[in-house]
């Protein structure tokens, strides 16, 4: 009984249940049309990875009580920071990739620093960076290339030392899936097994109480803003190398889908509660739904309606489960 209750109060319980439900649904409805094939599985894992790489870091930031709406724009910006210097100025790809990561860490630091210093909601601060980053990406790309797209990366990639870890498909699974799994393991471990993880919970649970017992709340929050910006750049890097091109609009709305995945995974919007594994399961659900619809007769344009309904259901379910967690004793 005690063991059962322990399972019941896990934040990812709702998401895991939902994931099984979604899988069973598509297995029945679209199983004969290819959802259950290896290719079908690889496909939805790949889509899940696109959400998951962002969602795992967004989950940590949310547990710490903050949002980052700028990661979608960060994807667009990072893609151009890599693609333009390589294709137009002949930089080696590894250098452009390092510059993109450095840039994202600076942006993340500034986001975090502003939030901590001004005590304004991170929603507002990062909404500003959302527009700033996208605007600069747009303006500078047009100024430099005269197009909103940068392509032709493919010719420069072979033999580059950094490109290898952001491309390919070891054991038949795309590199993004491996990054997603790796990040889930590492960040999940950090959250539950290190003092820093404890501080993340505390920073979002009650920043003042945490500060009073000596938790460096500002440092925790700023570092997590840097993490979300860096994972956005990671995703941008993988995409640019994979497709050989990028667009100024790359990553639009990715920030909201990452938040959706994290919330479906049981992460509390107001902080202090949640899990990395939950966010990963949430991302997996998004991937399965997005790809699953493709295998059914349903028009894929319905995906967003399904996503909205799932989000609402998830919030209600998680709310109920959290109430149970606090009641059980």
């Amino acid at each position: 009984m005690a063991a059962l209750r322990k399972v019941l109060v896990r934040p990812e319980l709702g998401a895991v249940t939902a994931a099984i439900g979604v899988f069973v649904f598509f297995a029945i409805v679209a199983g004969s049309r290819g959802f259950l094939t290896t290719q079908g599985t690889v496909n939805y894992l790949e889509v899940g990875a696109e959400h998951g790489i962002l969602a795992v870091s967004v989950a940590l930031l949310m547990i710490a009580g903050e949002f980052d709406l700028s990661i979608g724009s960060m994807i667009g910006a990072a893609g151009m920071i890599i693609a333009i210097p390589v294709t137009k100025f002949g930089w080696p790809p590894w250098l452009a990739i390092l510059v993109a990561f450095a840039f994202s860490l600076v942006v993340g630091y500034l986001n975090g620093w502003l939030v901590v210093r001004t005590r304004l909601p991170s929603f507002i601060i990062t909404l500003a960076s959302l527009y700033l980053l996208r605007g600069f990406t747009f303006g500078l790309t047009i100024a430099l290339l005269n197009y909103t797209r940068a392509s032709g990366m493919g010719a420069f990639l072979s033999g580059d030392p950094l490109v290898a870890i952001f491309s390919g498909a070891p054991l038949g699974l795309k590199i993004s899936i491996w990054w997603w799994a790796g990040l889930t393991l590492v960040l999940g471990w950090v959250l539950f097994r290190t003092p820093y993880g404890n501080w993340i919970f505390a920073a979002g649970g009650d920043a003042l109480a945490a500060r009073n017992v000596g938790v460096p709340v500002a440092r925790v929050k700023i570092s997590l803003f840097m993490l979300t910006a860096a994972t956005a750049t990671l995703l941008a890097t993988i995409q640019v190398i994979d497709t050989g091109s990028t667009d100024v609009l790359r990553g639009e709305l990715a920030e909201l889908e990452a938040i959706a995945a994290a919330v479906i995974g049981g992460n509390l919007l107001t902080g202090g509660y949640g899990s990395v594994l939950g966010a990963t399961v949430g991302a997996l659900i998004l991937g399965m739904v997005q790809q699953g619809i493709f295998y059914t007769n349903i028009d894929t344009n319905w995906y967003k309606a399904v996503l909205g309904a799932m989000l609402l259901a998830a919030v209600l379910l998680n709310n109920y489960l959290r109430y149970q967690a606090l009641r059980s004793r």
Partner: peptide
């Protein structure tokens, strides 16, 4: 912190 476990609260800041 109400949503954190007793243990994590007990050792918060001095894990």
């Amino acid at each position: 912190l109400p949503l954190m476990s007793i243990t994590r609260n007990f050792f918060l800041g001095r894990e």
